[in-house]
Design a protein around this nucleic acid. Structure first.
Lengths: 337, 337
DNA sequence: TCGCAAGGCTGGATCGTTTCACGACTAGAC
DNA sequence: GTCTAGTCGTGAAACGATCCAGCCTTGCGA
């Protein structure tokens, strides 16, 4: 049953040539006579020859697979990025290996090592704080990497402008008359979180207001719908006056928040306005259509893969501008106090 | 700059042992003295030794990566499956390669070949009609495969019960008094489509009604929101009386349908009821919360990977039962004509 | 003291491909 | 007929790890 796969040797034998010639047909067809090439190709077809990628890579040293280390493949934000990466890789036949870290540095370290052992052509990663250190060493071994959605001085990167995104969101909320806003943020160590916060603060300052009184930051342990809902409940039950607007680190958190507000009979946007981030495809179809900061995820993935394949060493930083999509969840002009 | 990676030979040299011993430390540590093992391990740490997976696989013949060929990584249904697969593979340190076929047989063939050349440990695939044929040959080379969400006599498979799902949906709609139902189906060649249709017909027949008059089937070229909306528009503009209920092949199509109905001022569920499939996480938060047939996607992915790693040859078929989640989009008892 | 067994380690063959120095052959010029 | 310049094709070395037959050492019993 377990028939053996044909090797170049078998092909050579059947075509009556040497293995070197078979290899030439495969890699430098122009150096081989038409006639011999035909013979070899027929033999390959007859035997259903398949190259052994391991042997190939061992000898030639070049790999045709790229590794992507994402935060969570289950999250549509990262999935869209993955799809963009995949599309770019498919252009020149590269394969994609993926894994989810769930923001666990240990897991990340394991995956980095695993990819290195596989000898991948390069690594794309949505990084944590400690990631660049882990990747630097690989670079000395000739394995390049590109950071996605976060930047560092030592690595090339592709991502959105999070400072700008945070600014857009806050400018909008301030213009609507909000003066007590809560930012449901992710881990404060994540660069995206810090940048969006910075943008938010910038917008408040630019409006001549005091960030300390206008903006309250809550850091979620996980940027999920249920964590968002939990955080909301805590806010509502707390002693402080109810915020009039919530800026959520992503649409999924916003989803939980909307659910929570609805359950408690609070009107969106009249009682509380909500703004999300990422503008996932369902944002416009929610019970309360969601205002959100759009990022071109698929393009980001595409660009990252493109950069990795073309020019991974130049520490280029590609930034895609965010776009605010205003929908009903924040479309309400608040009367001045 | 491009420092060379340390090989077993380097490690052996530094530890003052032979390469065979290094290999033993790696693969059969119990056959090596404690002292030598220590020495070798120190040397490995000093040199930051990383196994070369290609060489390893070439010689030992075992691979530690699994390939998954999915219909569309951008679609949350498949993404959840991917996440389930990934979680199972992580248990024993296997890596995952993914790709999206977009239902293009050519692409699928290319990916199958690519995975075969990589010498993957096995292949998981959400198949098309022609897929099993493509995979059969690989099996003779010792590369097993498991079908996801669709079954065949020649392969192991894991998936939902689509006949049952179709039946559930239709039983529900019939019970609500609907007698003119349209099924917005995917490609009629897809097994899921055929099975769900069969279940739907069974339910109608069991209710003593005539499927031919109760159910109209529309096949979408792609199961996307915009295609769903297009199809809806065509239905509404057509000469036939307006259906009172729409059964959609998945929640994304339902999303488009809901958007289309709303745009045209039709009330859901009073004018038209909508039922989706998959129960994606946002289904409950839509403008009109969506009734949907739930499938445990993550579990399905997990089980498929588990089957592949444990017992890929037994042509087992694991089936997960569907569950109907009734929400507002179909929660309306229609008065009898 | 010798023999023997078992444990520990060695060194070379091997996996399938690529690469490269070199040999064989062809054709054209003299 | 010889020489030259190419053109094609050959065959062996190399990539890095694994595996195995066998050598060397050690310790124990006689």
């Amino acid at each position: 049953m377990a028939k053996q796969r044909a090797s170049v040797k078998d092909v050579a034998q059947r075509a009556g040539v040497s293995v070197g010639t078979v290899s030439n047909v495969l890699n430098r067809p122009e150096t081989v006579t038409e006639r011999t090439r035909q013979r070899v190709e027929t033999a390959m077809a007859d035997l259903n020859f398949m190259r052994n990628a391991s042997a190939r890579q061992l000898r030639a040293g070049v790999s045709t697979t790229v590794g992507a280390i994402l935060t969570d493949l289950g999250n549509p934000f990262y999935t869209e990025i993955a799809r963009g990466i995949e599309d770019r890789l498919a252009v020149d036949g590269h394969a994609l290996m993926v894994c989810s870290t769930d923001e666990d540095p240990q897991r990340e370290a394991r995956f980095v090592r695993q990819f290195a052992e596989q000898g991948v052509r390069g690594i794309l990663v949505t990084p944590m704080v400690s990631t660049p250190d882990r990747l630097r060493e690989l670079a000395t071994f000739g394995i390049p990497s590109v950071l996605i959605d976060s930047r560092s001085d030592t690595h090339a990167s592709v991502g959105g402008d999070h400072v700008g995104g945070g600014r857009l969101a806050l400018e909008h909320l301030l213009a609507q008359g909000h003066r007590h806003i809560v930012f449901l943020n992710a881990d404060k160590h994540l660069q995206q979180s810090r940048h969006r916060l910075r943008g938010a603060v910038e917008a408040i300052t630019a409006a001549g207001l005091d960030p300390g009184t206008v903006l309250q930051v809550v850091n979620l342990s996980q940027p999920t719908a249920s964590e968002g809902e939990q955080a909301l409940i805590k806010l509502l039950e707390g002693p402080e006056p109810r915020p009039t607007a919530l800026f959520c680190i992503n649409d999924i958190v916003a989803l939980g928040v909307i659910r929570g507000l609805r359950t408690r009979g609070l009107r969106i946007p009249q009682d509380v306005a909500v703004v999300g981030y990422d503008d996932l495809y369902w944002a416009s179809e929610l019970m309360t259509p969601l205002t959100s900061v759009r990022q071109p995820m698929r393009q980001i993935g595409w660009a990252a893969a493109d950069l990795l394949l073309r020019d991974p060493l130049g520490a280029t930083h590609t930034v895609f501008p965010p776009e605010l999509i205003v929908r009903k969840s924040s479309d309400y002009q608040r009367p001045a106090d």
